[in-house]
Amino acid sequence: MTQRASGPAAGATYVFAVTRTLDPAVVADLGGMSAGEPVRTLPLGSLVGVVQSVPAHDFTDEAWQQRLSDPHDLERCARAHNEVVSASAAYGPVIPLPLATLYLSDTRARQALESEADRFHAVLRRIAHHAEWGVKVYSSPAPPPAGADRPVPSADRGRPAPGAGLAYLERKRGLQQRREQCLEQSLRIAEEVDAELGKLATAARRLRTHGRRPSDAQGSQVLNATYLVAEQRAQEFAELTRALRGRTEARIELSGPWVPYSFISEV
């Protein structure tokens, strides 16, 4: 993107992930973070890093701050990172590194990563044959009042009947109460869903719920959870989600399988 006249392009090594073994061909055709250099593997003793050489001047803190504040750039980076990480899981468990993990050279990357080999192996053992599944539950929108829409007797088309003001206030109060009841019920459903799914999962985490969107007629998010689920339980997990959807009548979204991003750091 940016062209700099600074001598021989200084390189940096961007690290996407660490895994036990990987055929370089699996990632060779991916775009990665920067056009030009291929995504490749970097041997790290008993492990393999998935890396790419990138121009250093494009990957400074400054450049990143700028990149991250542009929604389109951010999207491109996040998707590119995730694409390489996901592909790297082809032969077994993979540890994603946080977005923007950079070293000045392959040698520096090797030094830093090899010194963490024990930690990596421990995490790889824990997440082997597991995937992450995300579950979101939304509150149901407040139902329209049952027949309460036109309770005001109008004696005369022009003038409100006596008691119309009071009726109006009561209707408003009723609406507020129904909203609160709905939310309470949704929160109860969220807890129920989380508890049920948690039983099938090896580990569970709550993520921050996304804010309510102004136009979101579908209700707000009451649960944003993510679960570490063993491979052989994935089917069962999806079925349980479906069953919960039917039982609670709540909008429940399931996403996955993900590389277990959310279950890497809790060693």
Binding site: A78, P98, A100, L102, Y103, R119, F120, V123, Y261, I264
Partner: peptide, 13 residues
């Protein structure tokens, strides 16, 4: 998942 997750390793930059 991508932004603040993953194992924390000190990078050079």
């Amino acid at each position: 998942r991508v932004l603040d997750k993953g194992i924390v390793i000190a990078g050079d930059i």
